[in-house]
């Protein structure tokens, strides 16, 4: 017995599926006509199957017949629709072919882009990720304790000048650096710690070409047993080569931050002049890019870490400043104007 007649429903479904695909795939009226013949012609797949229905038993023949006719109607309708579509296309193609001018502009789409500071931030965080640093977040409004005291900075100390700090209330400030993240991270997790936290920081500087009352920084922290000044130098030197290029030189010089000791300022050979001296590096051939140091034991004491057992290093740098230098942007205010013509340059 012909196997087709064991399950006619399945065979009709297969024909419907194949037919639909073939109709879709046809790109010319000629091809489409070939499809019609293949399915609905005198020797078409569907026509042949419908003819065989007579062999079925009385019980299943009516249902199978209805299904067969439905598929036939469907394919006929799809063939007609496709034919109309191809005719329309053909007409269009004819016009275009008549013009034959492929130098006419194509249809463009708007180009989007991340803010230059976001691009720099992402790049910095990705470099530190290869050194095992995850990316964290920290509040922008802080108590005086988090922003200063826990970081070994007394309010009487010249380093914590109230003139430069935005206060919300007597005990609440807008963070003046991203460094308070050290306290939050160490309070929420025991060592080992490896984290970078970028974010907005606030200083009471009026707007001018190189100052904004809010700008971006990133701070990093690594804490474990046995971390040393050599580990700090290695991490920073690696970072500098990745961010500024293999040939960039790094040097450390003594500096002072209340929350690190030993502290260092990191200078890199000027990326603008390559070390020969220019206006960006004030003729010195070197640019200051970040501060860093070994975590001060007083900071560990503030969060209840064992300052004898654990050591660590910390670093912080101005993302905004790096963006200005990297892209040669002469005025920091351009970053905050939302000017489309400016932002498009970084898209």
């Amino acid at each position: 017995m012909n196997p087709l007649l064991v399950n006619p429903g399945e065979e009709f479904a297969r024909i419907e599926q194949d037919g639909r695909r073939a109709i879709e795939a046809a790109t010319t009226l000629e091809e489409l006509e070939a499809v019609r013949v293949q399915y609905l012609g005198r020797k078409g797949r569907l026509t042949l199957l419908l003819r065989q229905l007579g062999q079925l038993s009385e019980a299943v023949r009516p249902a199978a017949g209805r299904e067969g006719n439905r598929v036939k109607d469907l394919l006929s309708r799809l063939l007609e629709e496709r034919a109309r579509a191809l005719e329309a296309e053909h007409a269009g193609a004819a016009v275009a072919a008549a013009v034959e001018d492929r130098t006419l502009p194509g249809r463009a789409r708007w180009r989007g882009g991340l803010h230059p500071c976001t691009q720099v931030t992402d790049e910095i965080c990705e470099i530190f990720r290869t050194l095992g640093f995850v990316r964290g977040r920290s509040p922008e409004a802080e108590t005086v304790w988090y922003n200063f005291t826990a970081l070994n900075t007394s309010l009487d100390h010249p380093a914590a000048d109230a003139q430069a700090t935005f206060y919300l209330q007597a005990d609440a400030v807008l963070r003046t650096h991203t460094t308070p993240m050290q306290i939050h991270v160490m309070q929420s997790s025991p060592p080992p710690i490896r984290v970078v936290v970028p974010g907005v920081v606030y200083r009471r500087d009026p707007w001018d070409a190189s100052h904004a009352p809010a700008f971006e920084q990133v701070d990093g922290l690594a804490v474990d047993e046995g971390i040393s000044f050599v580990d700090l130098k290695a991490a920073i030197a690696y970072f500098v080569r990745e961010l500024f290029g293999r040939e960039t030189k790094t040097r450390f010089r003594p500096s002072f931050f209340p929350f690190t000791e030993p502290s260092a300022e990191v200078e890199v050979s000027c990326t603008v002049c390559g070390g020969g001296g220019c206006s960006t590096c004030k003729g010195t051939g070197w640019m200051e890019i970040m501060g860093c140091g070994m975590v001060h034991p007083a900071v560990f004491e503030a969060v209840g870490y064992d300052a004898e057992r654990y050591t660590g290093y910390a670093f912080g740098m101005g993302i905004t400043r790096i963006a200005l230098v990297r892209y040669g942007i002469p005025d920091i205010r351009l970053l905050y104007e939302g000017d489309m013509r400016f932002l498009e340059q970084f898209a």
Binding site: S189, D224, I236
Partner: peptide
């Protein structure tokens, strides 16, 4: 400034 082995953070 040689990189030495380190442990990942928690």
């Amino acid at each position: 400034d040689e990189l030495r082995p380190f442990r990942l953070g928690r």
